[in-house]
Computed example of a mutant assay.
Amino acid sequence: MTGPGERDGDVVAEIGAGAGAGTRPRIVALGGGHGLFAMLQALRRLDADLTAVVTVADDGGSSGRLRRELPAIVPPGDLRMALAALAGETDEAELWATTLQHRFAGEGALAGHPVGNLVLAGLAEVLGDPVAALDATARLLQARGRVLPMSCRPLTIVAQVERLDADPAAVRTIRGQVAVAATPGRVRSVDLEPRDAAACPEALAAVAAADLVVLGPGSWFTSVLPHLMLPGSAAGLVATAAHRLVVLNLSAQPGETEGFSPEQHLDVLSAHAPAFRIDTVLADSGAVPLPGRLAATTDRLGARLVLADIAVPGESRHDPTALAAAIGPVLARAVSDRAVRGRGRGQA
């Protein structure tokens, strides 16, 4: 078990040396919602080319309302949040980011809708392509990275849930992200519908070219695991030569993972996607009550455990600067390992 150990400047220098002159390492972060937002706020502090791949199964709030009115669009809420996390730092970019995050007040038809959700929905219809809509919005925001949907079709989460009634052996099927996230039962497994949905080609290309792929933090069953439930996405994550980093949550989530230990999160991920190799697991030191047990689990999975202080003191949210400092050495190692493999192929 190790901690971050390097200052930000050392991390950037080490990454640059491993990547080669004029080359920026490539990171793909997968997830959704607030977990991915926190991760992107950290990753933008590193000198790297960033791509966010976002789940498209949200059916609550504004996204749910838009899905019901415009069934063909991908739910825009998590995509909007990822764009906002990567927005540039000029006055113009910050104005656009603030505007896209702004929610209409009142009690009318627009009440509760963020401006950005409507912009993304409208651009997708005008351009006929959700990826083109995201790229156009990214240009407005002067985004420090690209945001892509996991699939260009809206998806539905389907969970098998136990302990919902008096029969402890009964397993019920629950559909929908909101229903799964709020279930009082215990989620056993999740899947996606439609099963034949194609993964976004641009997302697959980004994963294939990445030096580092980051999964988590976030709602485990509804934001993290779905990336391994879509067949095309899962195949890409298994096949990539990138270093695979899993970042654990700071606490269990009521409903989805209530009562789960850190190692149970890894066991669930491994059970859902046994072919997915984990190279490094990053967890907050204060969120791991039994470090030895988590170390044994990561070792069994063939991964390396990094424990670091990556939470805001006294709060259950990640500190972007501390998180970036902990990921920096992992990225440097990923770039170095890929360079070594490349030299090996050149000598073969």
Rank of each mutant, 00 (worst) to 15 (best):
G77Q: 01
G185T: 06
G88P: 03
V158K: 04
G108P: 06
A136N: 05
H113S: 05
A181Q: 06
V158D: 07
A166H: 12
V178E: 15
V190S: 05
A93G: 10
A143N: 05
L70N: 07
D58P: 05
L164R: 04
V74C: 05
R103D: 11
V171G: 10
L83E: 00
L134W: 08
D91I: 06
I157W: 00
P76E: 03
V178S: 13
D196P: 10
V171F: 12
T156V: 11
L118A: 01
A133C: 01
I174W: 10
P149T: 05
S189M: 14
A170M: 11
A132T: 09
S189Q: 10
V119L: 13
V147M: 03
R188N: 10
L120M: 02
V180W: 09
A132Q: 13
R172N: 12
F104Q: 02
E69R: 08
M150N: 04
G128I: 07
A72I: 00
T183M: 07
Q142M: 09
E69L: 13
D58H: 08
G108W: 11
A181F: 07
M81Y: 14
E125Y: 08
R146Q: 00
S63I: 03
T90F: 12
T183F: 08
A170Y: 13
L86Q: 02
P149L: 08
R146V: 02
I174Y: 11
P168R: 07
A181E: 06
V74R: 00
V131N: 00
A182S: 14
L134T: 00
E125W: 13
S62H: 04
D167Y: 03
P194L: 10
R175N: 15
R188G: 11
A179M: 06
R188Q: 15
L155Y: 01
R67V: 01
G176H: 05
V161E: 06
A181N: 08
V147I: 05
G60F: 07
L79R: 01
P76H: 02
P76A: 08
M81N: 15
D191N: 15
S62N: 04
G77P: 03
L155V: 01
V158C: 11
T90C: 09
P114R: 04
A181P: 05
V126H: 14
L100H: 07
R172H: 15
V54P: 00
G108A: 07
Q101K: 14
Q142N: 12
G116N: 07
G60N: 08
A87S: 13
F104A: 03
E162H: 09
P71T: 04
R65S: 14
P149E: 01
E162T: 13
D91W: 14
E69H: 12
S62D: 01
A136D: 06
R146T: 04
R144A: 12
T137E: 07
T137S: 15
S151I: 06
T173V: 14
A124I: 05
S151H: 05
I157G: 02
P149H: 07
R67I: 04
V147K: 07
E125K: 09
R195L: 15
L134D: 02
D58W: 04
E125H: 14
A124E: 08
N117A: 09
R80K: 10
D58Q: 08
A72R: 02
A179T: 05
R146C: 00
H102V: 11
C152M: 11
P75S: 06
T173C: 12
V187Y: 11
C152R: 01
F104W: 13
G128A: 09
G145V: 01
V180D: 00
A181K: 03
